[in-house]
Each structure stands twice: as C-alpha cells, then as structure tokens.
C-alpha cells in the first residue's frame, strides 16, 4: 500500500475540491433524505387519519395558528444569508492562505504530461472515453445529459412532492436521479481522479502510480453486437415499463403521462442504464465495440 502516493494525490491542491465533494454530497444526501423520511411519516399518518388531514398544517415544522404563516424577509432571511456569506468568505480566505493554486512548468506542447487529465469536473467524461469512442463520450453523452436534465420536469408527471422532501411519493424519480448523479457522475469523477493513473490505467487507491507499468489487455468486439443492442433495448424498455407500473400508485402516475413523455423517459432511462452496462462489458468481459459501422461504432 503506497500511502505516500495516496496522500500526494489527496493533498494535491487541485484535488481538494473532489475531497470536499466526496464529504459534502453524502452529508447533504443524508440531510435531504432525513427530511424526506420525516415527511413520509407525516404523510402516512395523515393518510391513516383523514380528519387530521383536514386540520393539520401538513408540515413537519412546528406551527401554531397564532404564528404568522409568513415572516418578513428583513431581518429573518437576510440575516441568515449574511451569515452564510460570512462563513463562505472565511472558508475561502483560509483555504487561499493555506493552499496555493498550482502553477506547473510553462506549457510545453511536445512534452505530454502523463497522465494528462481534464479538470476534475470533466474527468467523468474523460473516463467515458475508455468505454466509448470520442464522439460518443465527448459530445453525445454530455449533450444527452444536458437535454436529459432539462427534460426532467416535462416528463415527471407526478404532482406529489412539489415543494417538500419526500421519498415514498417520488421513489422512482429520486432513485433514478441518485443513480445518475451519485452513481454515474460522481463515481466517474472519483475514478477519473483517484483511480486512473499514468497511461489512464486502473490503479487501485494505494497502488503506486508507475509510469512503466505494462498491462496486457485484448479487447474484442462482440459478435452480433447489433442483435445484442436491440435485445438490450427491448429488455430495458420492458423492465422500465414493469417498474413504473409496479404499484397502483405508479400506475396512476403512469396514466397521467402522455405517450411522448413516456417515450422520452424510456429513451433517457435506457441510455442511462446503457452506460454502466457498457462499462461492465468492458471491465469484466473485455468487450470493446457492440456495433461497428464504417462511419461510427458504439
């Protein structure tokens, strides 16, 4: 276990944000889900007792009729914003005093850095380069991520959970998002920064990044890849349909969906699942391309 190497990667000034992210995201996930479960308990209670449902102010926060529903922005909101600003400034200032922004040798076009990595937030995409061709990993996938994100409100027909934390009422949506955000985006970033060493080779955390490491891998294309692709799409579509019409509640939501919304959702979910599948195919079975055409290959 080369702790020295691990420490140097962790302590490199430019990797500090990822360490910060690795701490902040779990915290906030826990913080958010905690409030969701609280709301879920309240919802269960209200559904069990309709009379209460009529009178209850329907929030977990305490409330009494004599309290105002709304409070003045000044001072109550502005003071906390001011506090937040102060804290952020202190963090930023201390961070700037302690750590220096990196400045490496002057740019030298004919001396390739090994490993040469994109900034940490694009490292996820760079990791995708291993599994997909550059046009896919570099352009299509980011484009789809953006469009996918934008499409969420228009394909989520579930009216519940608007304005309050809930898990029970939006299980599918939250799980999908967590999978997309944590499972794919952050994991890929984590791999790209801490696991991918020189030559973009896989180095388990703690292994020494050795420039001379030679790994013998023979990747082969999947015969009849197109068939596999079609089979996968069909299976995925069926599985997704199965999932979103699992319970009567889901069926109710599904009923609200228009055909176009349904198709768009299926399209994005299938693509999202395709990513980890492709990664598994490559990591476990050394399969490179599924579909090879003279113009492009997947």
């Amino acid at each position: 276990m080369d702790l020295h190497q691990l420490w140097t990667i962790l302590a490199t000034p430019d990797n500090v944000p990822i360490v910060l992210l690795a701490l902040a995201v779990p915290f906030y996930t826990w913080y958010g889900l905690r409030q969701s479960f609280a709301n879920d308990r309240l919802i269960a209670q209200l559904e069990a007792d309709p009379a209460l449902a009529r009178t209850h102010h329907r929030k977990t926060q305490p409330w009494r009729p004599e309290w105002d529903r709304e409070v003045h922005v000044w001072p109550y909101l502005l003071r906390i914003e001011f506090l937040a600003a102060l804290i952020v400034t202190v963090i930023l200032l201390v961070w700037s005093i302690l750590l220096n922004a990196p400045l490496e040798e002057p740019a030298n076009p004919n001396l390739t850095m090994n490993p040469s990595k994109a900034p940490w937030y694009f490292v996820g995409l760079q990791e995708m380069l291993v599994y997909f061709d550059p046009w896919l990993a570099g352009v299509v996938i980011p484009f789809l991520i953006i469009v996918g994100l934008m499409a969420i409100p228009y394909i989520d027909t579930n009216p519940l959970g608007s304005g309050y934390y809930t898990f029970k009422q939006r299980k599918a949506a939250i799980l999908t998002f967590l999978f997309g955000f944590l499972g794919l985006w952050l994991t890929m970033i984590f791999i790209g920064v801490f696991v991918r060493g020189p030559g973009w080779m896989w180095f388990w955390p703690g292994a020494t990044w050795d420039h001379n490491r030679l790994v013998f891998e023979v990747n082969r294309d999947l015969p009849f890849g197109a068939l596999f692709l079609a089979a996968y799409t069909a299976a995925a579509a069926w599985a997704i349909h199965k999932l979103i019409t699992l319970t009567p509640f889901h069926r109710k939501i599904h009923a609200r969906m228009s055909r176009f919304q349904y198709l768009v959702m299926q399209f994005f979910l299938i693509l999202m699942l395709a990513l980890p599948l492709k990664i598994l195919l490559r990591q476990l079975f050394r399969i490179k391309y599924l579909l090879v055409t003279p113009w492009f290959n997947i």
Binding site: I87, V90, L93, V94, S96, I97
Partner: peptide
C-alpha cells in the same frame, strides 16, 4: 463568524 472573518483577514 464576523470574528472569524476578522481573524482570517488579519492572518492574510
């Protein structure tokens, strides 16, 4: 936090 900010400024 105001005090902390002051200290940070002094430190810088």
């Amino acid at each position: 936090s105001a005090l902390l900010l002051l200290l940070a400024l002094a430190w810088s």
